[in-house]
Design a protein around this nucleic acid. Structure first.
Lengths: 108, 108
DNA sequence: ACTTGGTACTTTGTTTGGCATAGTACTAAA
DNA sequence: TTTAGTACTATGCCAAACAAAGTACCAAGT
């Protein structure tokens, strides 16, 4: 295993948190989210992102509205629901404590 | 999904790093590792840890020696190999940069 | 009009890896 | 010699990331 792979593994664990964080900034459609993650070096591919958004929508954390585009088919713009915001807060705390936990293993 | 579940997801991504870090302190057998992870609130179960150790051994990152126990069957004491140490260093860097990446998503 | 290229979303199948469960084996104590 | 505790192994299931192919919509060029 290379570190490329290691990063991929790490990414999996926090994909939902990442998507929630991106949407925490405001509504966005799949390509926006993909772009934001890419900028943070957390690239995900179509085959991962779309099903993930659908799952999160079905879980009630996200909602979406259709919006026409000038350069192609209509887009699904996702927003956090109330329950999504609550989850985001909870997961932010969880993330912090998790990072501390892993870091605590570093030395003796 | 509750935060319990979220933490479980996060944990998956860094299990190998955690095991490497624990072994970075010195050799240990499965229960030692399990205990160390538990203390860091990163509990893993038998069904996960044993196969993981076997995979890492097969990948050449770990080695083990048998040691008799006074209270049960012999134990496999694992140590990092040279390649395991190199991987640990690489994954430590990866982890740091990964945490930064996720944190960079937090605010706009 | 029809084709081409770009964009957006969907669907299907594969693979990986964590986990539950059951099983084997060794030791010590009752 | 049975029981309990510990340590490791083997089998099978399931969720989720990913790859790849497909559908559909739009606009621009011929």
């Amino acid at each position: 295993m290379n570190t490329e792979n290691a990063r991929a593994q790490m990414r999996k664990g926090v994909l939902e948190l990442c998507v929630l964080r991106v949407l925490g900034r405001g509504e966005a459609y799949a390509s926006d989210i993909s772009e934001a993650l890419k900028q943070a070096d957390l690239l995900v591919v179509e085959g991962t992102l779309y099903p993930l958004l659908t799952r999160m929508k079905n879980a009630g954390w996200l909602d979406y509205r259709w919006e026409e585009s000038k350069s192609g088919p209509p887009r699904k713009y996702y927003q956090l629901t109330e329950s999504g915001r609550i989850l985001l807060d909870a997961m932010n705390s969880e993330w912090t404590s998790f990072v501390d936990a892993v870091n605590s293993l570093k030395n003796s």
